[in-house]
Design a protein around this nucleic acid. Structure first.
Lengths: 343, 343
DNA sequence: TTGTATGCGTTATCAG
DNA sequence: CTGATAACGCATACAA
């Protein structure tokens, strides 16, 4: 692979007639080394083009400075923003990220877990697939006390931090808003009720109905994979309902957009006939017509917080047991898709 | 960090009363080891929960099984698709990806380059910032013969593979299409003319005009950062033009959408007054009204091809010098934003 | 403040 | 087919 020989601390030591130990110490700015020799050493290091060998160091220190990330898919606006936030913090702290996608497959999630375990990552940041039931594949990390943080799609795992927004509250506000606009027959599009985010959103929706004395209807709950196509399919079901629902609260903007477009093609007017609220504040929400009312979900910030938290823990500057759940702020953003014109 | 002691090949060797050399060979399926002992060893390895230590191996073999990726930003649909494709191939081939963002800053690109160099990545996949002029920061890789592949935003660097679509042709077809719809005053929204993709698109646009005997007008070229906001700003400039342009070819869907929305708010009809063609086939192109004609740009596939190519080269199964440029297929997708109604 | 010596877990080179 | 042993480059306990 390489041509020129790599420069090592031995080369530096020989050239300066000092020991490798001193060089090693100087390079990591150990206060025990005198300023003078430190300067000599770092100057020579630059001159000779020395670069430290991470593998030798990792082998020696038993740390990797690497963080594993497992996510369902990277190519959504929300998730790529999360990753961008993580990358931002990790890079500035000298950590590398190994990112792996489960593609919503439990099997792949398990496989990725094993790969990352074998890579001896220092910590793990995870957002679960729709269907993950057992958390047994994380046991090896727990046993080795490798810190594990769940974000967005979390799970109840003892001693693991979770980073979330208040999905219950967000859904409650969204639904209450629709009711305040005079809507009563509110459909809810969501995903399987295995993941906290969808469970909590459904609960928030139910509570909002209950608080306004609107009976909950099971047939108003449509479960799918929240893709744009799923939204279009849901539109067909909604159209068949008698009477026609007057609002839809969707657990994801993309799915909401798919549903809106399909309904519009059927001649249904938004928001006059059916009002919409989405979730995530995906850029597409300001492109669709009418613009989509949604919940702002700070992905970039969530990525930063997750990475920061994990690294603080790895550096010993925070105890993961002390902070078990971190809730980020989220808010309802009102746009035309849900606002009824004054009569 | 850890509780239980890690199992090493020494432990396996001791337990079986054989040498570590044999264990090491057996574990990597060296044909020189007898089937019998191989089986014994791998069984015990599983039983004792052995996992190989990448760092010791990397230290010994001077390879890292890690690929560095430098991109402008991860959180765009195109780029996150590229990353998804790379991850897909890399994971299945036992490679890890270190992804770093330059955020369109040359300084950050240089810094990332250094970081990845110090990480001793086996190879590098790069898409340049808008403004990168000098390629000197890649010299260390060239000197060490670390393979370097550019994709999308490429550069002329000797001995480096480039992965691209035919931007010239795509732009030529887009522009010719607009002309075929009766458009003559075609504005082009693009980015700084430092990167191949934007240079080639402009050239394709010019050639299409020339072939139809339409004079090129410098004032029809609007240069920006291709963000949605830049599109909105461009809309203001376009509105001031006398006479009003009758088409816009934009080097990026997001920017096109920003421009379309702004123009529509000014009361300009699309495509009646101004037709639009974008670039990338971002999902937003099927949400904006009217749906945006665009160039399909296969991001996921590009990521796969880039990773596959690099890994093949690392495995010695392909020579990077033999394939200098890879062109992926792209095509014009017609939608309502550019199609004139028959008179 | 600096030096010596050892081990981290593998792989590769010999020699059997 | 198998074994002994020397690197790989660094960090640290201990000694000076």
């Amino acid at each position: 692979m390489s041509n020129e020989k790599e420069v090592t601390i031995y080369d530096l030591a020989r050239k300066l007639n000092i020991s490798v130990a001193t060089v090693s110490r100087a390079l990591k700015d150990d206060p025990v080394v005198s300023k003078k020799t430190k300067k000599k050493i770092s100057d020579l290091a630059v001159e000779m083009g020395y670069r430290s060998n991470h593998f030798a160091r990792n082998l020696r220190t038993q740390r990797t400075n690497t963080i594993g990330v497992i996510i369902p898919r990277i190519n959504s606006y929300f998730m790529s923003s999360v990753i961008a936030g993580m990358e931002n913090i990790a890079t500035s702290e000298g950590y590398n990220l190994i990112i792996s996608q489960s593609s919503e497959s439990v099997e792949k999630e398990v496989a990725n877990t094993i790969t990352l375990f074998n890579n001896r990552v220092d910590g793990l940041l995870v957002s679960l697939t729709y269907d993950t039931d057992s958390l047994a594949h994380f046991d090896p990390f727990i046993r080795k006390k490798v810190p594990l943080i769940f974000f967005d799609r979390t799970a109840d795992q003892k001693d693991c931090t979770c980073i979330l927004i208040n999905n219950w509250k967000a859904a409650y506000e969204a639904t209450t808003h629709l009711i305040s606009q005079g809507r009563r027959r509110i459909v809810h599009l969501t995903a399987t009720q295995k993941r906290n985010v969808y469970i909590d959103r459904l609960e928030g929706y139910k509570q909002a109905l209950a608080d306004q004395r609107i009976p909950f209807r099971e047939d108003y709950i449509i479960v799918g994979n929240l893709s744009q196509e799923a939204g279009a399919e849901a539109a067909s079901r909604i159209r068949e309902m008698q009477p026609l629902p007057d609002a839809v609260f969707v657990a994801n903007d993309n799915c909401a957009v798919g549903c809106m477009i399909a309904l519009k093609q059927m001649g249904i007017r938004i928001p006059e006939d059916i009002a919409f609220v989405g979730f995530n504040n995906d850029p597409v929400s300001t492109v669709v017509e009418p613009n989509l009312t949604t919940i702002n979900y700070p992905g970039y910030e969530m990525g930063q917080v997750a990475a920061r938290n994990l690294i603080d823990h790895l550096n010993g500057s925070s105890n993961i047991h002390s902070t078990n759940t971190i809730i980020l702020r989220s808010e309802l953003i009102l746009r035309e898709s849900s606002v009824s014109r004054q009569p």
